[in-house]
Design a protein around this nucleic acid. Structure first.
Length: 570
DNA sequence: GCCGTTTTCGGCCCGACTGTTTTCAGTCG
């Protein structure tokens, strides 16, 4: 997508303008970059269909920005940007990642020391050339060195599946302290983003010193960045940072609202406050010096005329307008989920028996489970052949006879082969309660070929669910070459269900979920469990669905087993 | 440079922290 490329350029232009001391334009370029970044449609398509006029309908894009976009689409570069780069030929994105370095300092470092990239920076710092510079100093030099050290160690953002359990554990320990009046996780973790930079805790307590002492001495703390006043920061051995802040009770809600973000959402809510003659900050909502709200988040939103916005929606993607109009969705919730249909048993590569998986499902309060082992093409996963599937079918039938108020459904996770056929004979597929089909091979196919393949599979009447439809794995693998619009269209035509996979795939991703919902395409949240403990990760799929504005009606495993089977039959 | 159910001109989110230029610019979230 050109969107991301242009967004990156706009962001850098913003930095260059900032360096030149230009007022307000950097803000405009940043806004345009954010707008492009979160745009669902490809700008080249928009331009192709509607020309300049259509471009200027994108929020934050006006005459100058559409000029730039047009130029980039036609020539592959933007002169305005290239000129800046000639004047200051540094690896801006690289240097900006060093904590404590901003546009202005980077410019000085280039002009005085010729620093162009991280390597140059390290050299300059080690030779003590930075400290004597006007406006720098010993401490700044030391901080730059430390910032680079941290960059090296930092593996970037951490997958929510890996970080949330750790954060919850810490929250529990803090909650247990009798001096903690209130505590919450804030930040992107509260918004349930798929990857998290660091964890934020907000605490109300009269004994702030004691709480912070406890915090920095927690198990797993590798390094204490700082402690004092109302804030403590630590680095965990798992590779991420945690911050704890003590806030006054009367500002707990506004602080939670502020520290939950997103930044974009906050900017938007603050603007609304301004329009009403109010001021919103982490300390509360104020009219002059008088505090009108701040104790709870609900109060804060109410004071600016909005209904309460669930954290997962706070990305300034239309949720504020919806909260104004009272049209916010009622998001699907973990407790709405009645069963999990993507579970592997030890008949294929899985670890636990069907009955173990069933017991786990029961303990989660489900009404049903679907056993969906791999099929024969996936030899490495001990995929089942037709005969083995039929044998498993009999076994499940017998198990069901012994169960009351709970049902085991029998499916499989079949492979969509390169030509779009399924690796199990249709007459066997037809006997199962449902069929999941997924692409597990030749992931690098060209778009046309891949779409032909998926289309053919989606038109197979025995297929009910498309597993992990885009193939991405967070932080590991990009999606296959697909045309998601086409997939949505096909799903609509054929009544196929798209999976929201709760493993580290988190596939569908949030934006796609929202589009599926808008198109009326049904989805199912599955865990893709290969052992019973994997079934606990349902909440991550639910979180992803919530970020995609999905409601109960959009998710088919919120239905009773009878309704579900009816749907599969259709 | 963009934007407007009070505006086509006059605004653009807000506050804290840090280090250094000792009164505030730069950076961060």
């Amino acid at each position: 997508m050109k969107n991301q490329e242009i967004a990156k350029i706009f962001n850098e232009i913003a930095i260059f303008l900032e360096i030149d001391g230009v007022a307000f334009k950097p803000y405009a370029y940043e806004k345009a970059a954010i707008s492009l970044h979160s745009l669902q449609d490809d700008v080249s398509q928009i331009y192709l269909k509607g020309g300049r006029k259509a471009l200027e309908e994108i929020p934050g894009i006006g005459k100058a920005m559409s000029d730039h976009i047009e130029e980039y689409l036609k020539k592959g570069k933007i002169k305005f940007y290239e000129d800046f780069k000639k004047k200051l030929p540094v690896k801006m994105d690289e240097l900006m990642r060093v904590e404590g370095l901003g546009p202005k300092k980077i410019k000085v470092l280039y002009q005085k020391l010729g620093v162009k990239n991280l390597k140059d920076l390290a050299k300059a710092a080690k030779q003590h050339k930075i400290a004597p510079l006007f406006g720098f100093g010993e401490t700044t030099e030391k901080n730059i060195l430390q910032g680079m050290e941290f960059l090296k160690r930092d593996k970037g953002r951490v997958l929510i599946l890996d970080i949330l359990p750790v954060a919850r554990e810490v929250q529990k320990k803090l909650e247990a302290l009798k001096d903690v009046d209130k505590i919450s996780i804030a930040g992107s973790l509260r918004r349930k983003k798929e990857t998290i930079g660091d964890v934020d805790f907000l605490v109300v307590s009269k004994k702030s010193e004691k709480i912070m002492d406890f915090f920095v001495a927690l198990d797993g703390v590798e390094k204490v960045w700082g402690k004092g006043g109302t804030k403590a920061s630590v680095h965990m051995k798992q590779g991420f940072d945690m911050d704890l802040r003590i806030v006054p009770a009367k500002s707990y809600g506004s602080a939670l609202q502020y520290f939950t973000g997103s930044q974009d959402h906050n900017i938007a809510t603050r603007k609304i406050a301004i329009e009403k003659g109010l001021k919103l900050s982490e300390w509360g909502i104020f009219k002059g010096k008088q505090q009108l709200a701040g104790k709870t988040e609900e109060d804060v939103y109410k004071a600016i005329g909005l209904s309460y916005i669930p954290p997962e929606l706070r990305e300034n993607q239309g949720e504020i307008q919806a909260a104004m109009n009272g049209t916010l969705p009622i998001l699907v919730d973990l407790k709405d989920i009645k069963g999990d249909l993507h579970c592997h048993s030890n008949d294929d590569g899985g670890q636990d028996s069907i009955m173990d998986m069933v017991k786990k499902a029961m303990s989660l309060g489900y009404e049903y489970i679907g056993i969906s082992d791999h099929t024969k093409y996936l030899k490495i996963e001990n995929g089942l052949n037709e005969k083995q599937l039929l044998k498993q079918h009999e076994e499940i039938k017998n198990l069901n006879k012994k169960l009351k108020g709970f049902k085991i459904l029998h499916g499989c996770e079949a492979n969509i082969l390169n030509d779009g056929s399924i690796d199990i004979k249709d007459e066997v597929l037809a006997q199962l309660d449902y069929v999941i089909a997924g692409v597990h091979s030749s992931l690098k196919m060209e778009r046309k070929e891949m779409m032909f393949r998926i289309e053919k599979a989606m038109k197979n009447p025995n297929v009910d669910i498309i597993a992990h439809p885009t193939g991405r794995i967070v932080g590991q693998r990009d999606e296959y070459e697909i045309d998601f619009d086409k997939i949505l269209k096909l799903a609509k035509e054929t009544g196929k269900i798209l999976e929201i996979n709760s493993s580290s795939r988190l596939d569908l991703r949030d934006l796609y979920i929202r589009r599926a919902k808008e198109e009326g395409v049904k989805m199912i949240i599955n865990t893709d469990s290969h052992q019973k403990s994997d079934m606990d990760r349902m909440e991550y799929g639910v979180a992803q669905a919530r970020r995609g504005w999905a409601e109960k009606k959009d998710i088919i495993n919120t239905n009773s087993v009878d309704k579900l089977l009816e749907y599969f039959k259709k």
